[in-house]
Design a binder for these strands. Structure first.
Length: 204
DNA sequence: CCACGGATTGGCT
DNA sequence: GCCAATCCGTGGA
């Protein structure tokens, strides 16, 4: 699992498809961030789709603002926002120009750079299994562990600092579909996707 | 184990 | 001025 070389970076045309398809197909792919010499990476295990054309919970529902403008670009950009006065959350912009759609990365399973992630999260290096599970099982936790913040807003994911590696597509039977969590509007849309039985999915 | 609420910034009305 | 696509600690059973 240490050697990520045989896998290719996802190309632009992966991201420019519709948000639901991309949200599902991102499951099982590998999020990578280069941090100095360290390669932080994790298997994407939980996502949510947001679509401003029909979805009141999407930040683009109100139209274009300075904060959400990257979501109106075509797919393959990083939308990072700050919330609750404390946390960053990262999203992958999808679709065509002006669509205003994106996929929230809710949880990953740590693969490489675990020691660095633990330092980023807890400011120490010791890890037991309980801490490992708690490292990246939530959108704010993923950003903290990967040290993703305001500076990464608008990054092109076909570039070289943050990107996603391809992996074989999961079977539909390994994907669970539910309503989204942590929101107050458009709560009934079944736009949350996660890998069945994966222990790094958000706990409820 | 579960429920509850405080923290704390910045975007938008 | 309101309140959020969250997290964590506390307190009770």
């Amino acid at each position: 699992m240490k050697n990520l070389r045989p896998f290719n970076k996802l190309p632009r045309n992966f991201y420019t498809r519709d948000v639901i398809t991309v949200a599902k197909e991102l499951l099982g792919k590998v999020l990578v961030k280069k941090e100095g010499r360290e390669l932080l990476s994790g298997l994407i295990v939980e996502t949510e789709a947001y679509d401003g054309s029909v979805d009141q919970a999407a930040h683009t529902f109100i139209g274009r603002t300075k904060r959400n403008e990257i979501m109106f670009n075509y797919g393959g950009y990083f939308y990072v926002y700050f919330t609750y006065g404390a946390h960053f959350c990262c999203n992958i912009v999808t679709g065509k120009k002006e669509e205003g759609t994106a996929v929230l990365i809710r949880a990953v399973e740590p693969l490489t750079g675990i020691k660095q992630m633990t330092e980023n999260r807890f400011n120490k290096t010791l890890v037991n299994d309980k801490e490992k599970i708690n490292l990246t099982n939530g959108p704010g936790k993923v950003c903290k562990a990967f040290n993703i913040n305001k500076e990464h807003y608008g990054l092109d994911l076909t570039g070289n600092s943050v990107f996603v590696l391809d992996r074989p597509r999961l079977s539909n039977k390994d994907i669970v579909i539910t309503k989204r969590i942590g929101i107050k509007k458009s709560v009934d849309l079944p736009w949350r996707f996660f890998i069945k039985d994966n222990s790094y999915v958000t706990k409820r």
